[in-house]
């Protein structure tokens, strides 16, 4: 909303290619916008909807018609030009909204939770379509979403905001693998959080004591807490292995299965441990090493580079 110009920022500036656009009202920013629920004008046909941004910019009729046709071609809706939005499916409506937002060659396309009101299956379909269109158009899209999967699968860059503050910015893999804070680790995918006290902190990494269990953990210098301070480690469920008898790992902990569920592609196990609390583990169901059962004793293991130390920002 701040990027779009509907809300003034409490501090800072909005820059577009280096120039300050903070004081400009929405209509002067020339951004293409796709709104939640698409906000297509119900009293206009598809073609009139797409022509709207051109019309308010005072383009001639001939120019308008040519651009509208090109935009509808781009989203493969040329046959639907004379329909009303209410006669279109959800996917087609999204394409109209995109054509309308792109028709005037905006510098930037803003998408404000366009998919959030849809059911899961349609959402997945439209995500793919959106991604394909993005490739074809080759412009910057800024997509606001609360859907972590959407953020990971669509983006080149993800900015994670919490209560209006930027927490972390980076490529999806970087954010998933190297979350800086608990909020980021928790938002993108699922994570276990292990708490402990730093015993040693040196070049090789950390030694973290949690109850009777000692964990070894690699950590780059910037993220290395000093000895004696509390530490929080984020450990992804898929990076934990079930250890067979005699097998070892850098970190090992014993527990028993408190609950489990079958997810099709895999199992989710909730393993209760003495020192680390409940740890969630996923393992592929195809040729699973064990048949999960409640109360079954298991040994979990993970390497020193599996987890990441994170800042505890969850309040």
């Amino acid at each position: 909303m701040t990027i779009a110009g509907f809300v003034a920022p409490s501090a800072g500036m909005v820059l577009l290619d280096g120039s300050d656009i903070t004081p400009l009202p929405p209509e002067r920013r020339d951004f293409g916008m796709v709104f939640q629920g698409y906000a297509l004008f119900p009293h206009m046909t598809v073609a009139e909807n797409v022509a709207f941004p051109l019309r308010v910019r005072g383009l001639s009729r001939a120019d308008r018609d040519a651009k509208v046709r090109a935009a509808l071609d781009l989203v493969q809706l040329d046959r639907f030009a004379d329909r009303r939005p209410s006669q279109l499916s959800g996917g087609q409506q999204q394409r109209v909204a995109l054509a309308r937002a792109l028709v005037f060659d905006p510098a930037l396309l803003l998408l404000d939770e366009p998919l959030s009101a849809l059911d899961k299956k349609l959402r997945a379909e439209l995500q793919e379509e959106l991604k394909a269109l993005h490739r074809r158009v080759g412009r910057t899209f800024v997509n606001v979403t609360h859907d972590q999967d959407e953020a990971l699968s669509l983006s080149d860059q993800v900015a994670i905001l919490n209560h209006g503050r930027l927490i972390q910015l980076g490529a999806p893999e970087a954010l998933y693998e190297q979350p800086r804070t608990r909020f980021v680790a928790d938002f993108l995918g699922k994570s276990n959080f292990l708490q402990g006290l730093v015993q040693e902190s040196h070049l090789g990494g950390l030694r973290v004591q949690s109850g009777a269990t000692t964990l070894v953990q690699q950590a780059p210098r910037a993220l290395r807490p000093v000895a004696g301070s509390p530490a929080l480690l984020s450990l992804r469920p898929e990076k934990i292995a079930l250890l067979a008898a005699g097998e070892t790992a850098e970190n090992m902990v014993e527990g028993h299965i408190a609950a489990w569920s079958y997810l099709g592609a895999g199992f989710l196990l909730v393993v209760r441990t003495a020192d680390l609390g409940e740890i969630r583990v996923t393992l592929p169901s195809w040729r699973a090493p064990i048949a999960p059962a409640e109360g079954l004793a298991v040994r979990l293991g993970w390497s020193a580079d599996a987890a990441v130390p994170v800042l505890d920002d969850a309040a």
């Binding site: 209509e27 906000a39 004008f41 009293h43 709207f52 941004p53 308010v56 803003l110």
Partner: peptide
């Protein structure tokens, strides 16, 4: 009338006046 339609009109380049005349009034 969905108030988001007016925001949409503004976002797509219409001034307050145009948004009113082209979207709100017809609806």
């Amino acid at each position: 009338i969905d108030p988001r339609l007016l925001a949409a009109a503004r976002g797509l380049g219409a001034s307050r006046r145009t948004a009113f005349l082209r979207v709100f009034l017809p609806l």
